[in-house]
Design a protein around this nucleic acid. Structure first.
Lengths: 342, 342
DNA sequence: CTCTTTTGTGAAAACGCTATAATATAAAAG
DNA sequence: CTTTTATATTATAGCGTTTTCACAAAAGAG
């Protein structure tokens, strides 16, 4: 029955005093440097720590040791399910390997991205996991000269300085498009938002174009830019295409899950029936693609796996378990063929 | 053209030396205490900081000032779109008010939740925003004695110590159920996962039961527990119900978006047509509920708004802009009636 | 002109740890 | 027995800030 009146938060020196040893010894205990420590001392320290409910301050540790056990995570669009699943992967690895995530959302803004990097550095994160906006930025050149480990996820940057974990975007998009072409679709439109960055977008676009070109199909005019909040323009454009090429099989390719939803919504409103009047396929349906009738043909990525891989890589770099040149890892995405492209 | 050979990271004392003032003065400048500072000194400091590209170390600041400008966020299921949207709201407020989020995912595990709280405290976060698992835990009583501001989001805990931001779960669920009953549904089953916690679940369940009871309908056996990975049992149960009560209008209520998807999938597999053979409604469709035919009747919450509100509240508490007893804020959720409950 | 007040600045201690180097004791070796 | 080696522990000096208190110079008051 101890009196706990003045039980302020315990510090290392309070513990040291109570245990009758120096703070150095406590520190060594905390860092598991048991080499030259008598079992007796060790047990004594254990007991006192337990009794006082002492937990070392990470911030003080960080100041001295230059290690915060925090990794900075910069994500381009936090409310995208793709990002959530990635982050879950990162989180799981962090838990396992005893790190914490300091997360920043950039909303696909280059400025936020640059500020975010600086800000996380100010917070002394041990490493940086970035899902870039895709805009080119000088910050990366600076980062390269820093000794802070950096791993990119999903999107590549202008100059490939760092490890990158992404999907096999080109191959699987090509494969999907080739499937449609084989299925007699002769006009395929690549639907995307009006963003002038985002490397995966251009890779996917190239894959679609290449597939079209290699089969001798029209690929010059295949880009359709969509505004999520105002689909009027694109509706008109689509109806015009239908008029001009009504005798051909037409399909839309949605560059990501959110666009896919918008496009489906639009087709719904236009009362175009899938697939008889128009085909549709795209990236990432997050589970609902199967419930719609007909089911939607999608390319399903593995964001959770990407998060895992990227975080493992990053912490390996950080802990010196991996050295050498940066690499690119492409995780396989899955083409799921359903009725929307019959 | 300065030589930058030894340009290690600038510290406050390097800046001080270069500017010909004391670190105290630099510190005052950094903290915008311009009261008794000559304009000349101020400009001089500005120039040097600029030249050296100096950025103060948050970790050192934190050690001394006990303020890290980090808020700890504990989320029960990071890959749920509901959580992502909440976190986007939190993130936006943090950006605006100059805080960072340290995010932890608990996967609805009580143990992770408790560890997470302790761990975030070790990291000296300034405040805690918690989306609880819903399991009761002694950690909250301890937290209460701490002076760390805490705000809960979505789910209440056993003893309502802290501010809570949530939806008007009871009212809107009751309203939705009443609508179905008015629409002649006489058997409504509450479908949920087998989790023995989660306060919103029980509130929603009570609302469904109350609505049934008050109309004199059967409400004792309305709970259906589902296993996401094995829907066999529940399929059998459902078919049995259909056999027994084939002459009545039957509906399922899905307690959240993920269950809603699973249930829809199941009905799809059972080839039960909606709504002629079975009605369905539930929480949170995240945009796809409209695309399915028929559209799904859903209760749409405002997780983004909840994130905003909770973060504002938390930072207000933290900065002393709000005092007094804890409150509960219920943001209105939206009942969207579509064809699945005709 | 002195005395008080206002204005502007700095010395030094502290925050809670870790790291370096030094010291004390015990055991082994010569 | 000394000397060396192995074992166990500590004193001290930071890490990069903020804070308290003291102090000097300038301005105002009597």
């Amino acid at each position: 029955m101890e009196t706990e009146e003045t039980s302020k938060h315990a510090t290392i020196s309070i513990v040291a005093k109570k245990a009758g040893v120096s703070t150095t010894t406590i520190s060594r205990y905390l860092n598991e440097k048991y080499e030259y420590m008598s079992l007796k001392t060790r047990r004594r320290i254990e007991a006192v720590i337990d009794e006082l409910n002492y937990r070392p301050s990470n911030i003080a540790r960080g100041l001295k040791s230059k290690k915060t056990n925090q990794i900075g995570v910069i994500v381009a669009d936090i409310e995208n399910p793709f990002s959530s699943m990635m982050m879950k992967g990162v989180n799981d690895v962090c838990n396992r390997r005893n790190y914490h995530m300091l997360i920043l959302n950039t909303d696909n803004s280059q400025k936020s991205e640059e500020e975010g990097v600086l800000s996380l550095i100010d917070h002394n994160v041990d490493a940086l996991l970035i899902n870039p906006t895709g805009y080119s930025s000088s910050i990366y050149a600076e980062l390269k000269n820093n000794d802070l480990p950096v791993v990119l996820i999903d999107r590549q940057i202008e100059h490939p300085f760092f490890d990158l974990v992404t999907s096999n975007n080109y191959d699987v998009t090509y494969q999907a498009t080739a499937y449609l072409i084989k299925n007699n679709y002769s006009r395929i439109y690549f639907v995307t938002e009006n963003i002038d960055s985002i490397s995966t977008r251009s890779i996917r676009k190239k894959a679609v174009e290449d597939a079209l070109r290699e089969k001798g199909l029209d690929h010059d005019q295949c880009l359709m830019t969509i505004d999520k909040n105002n689909t009027l323009d694109i509706k008109e454009k689509l109806m015009k295409i239908k008029r001009l090429h009504g005798n051909e099989k037409i399909a839309l390719f949605a560059v990501n899950g959110q666009i896919l939803l918008v496009v489906l919504q639009m087709l719904h409103e236009l009362r175009l029936s899938i697939p008889s009047e128009i085909g549709i396929y795209g990236y990432d349906d997050w589970g609902w693609g199967e419930l719609i009738s007909p089911g939607i043909t999608v390319i399903q990525q593995d964001p959770y796996g990407m998060g895992i891989k990227a975080a493992e890589l990053l912490i390996d770099r950080l802990e010196g378990k991996r050295k050498g040149k940066s690499e690119v890892f492409e995780l396989p995405a899955n083409l799921i063929i359903r009725g929307s492209t019959d």
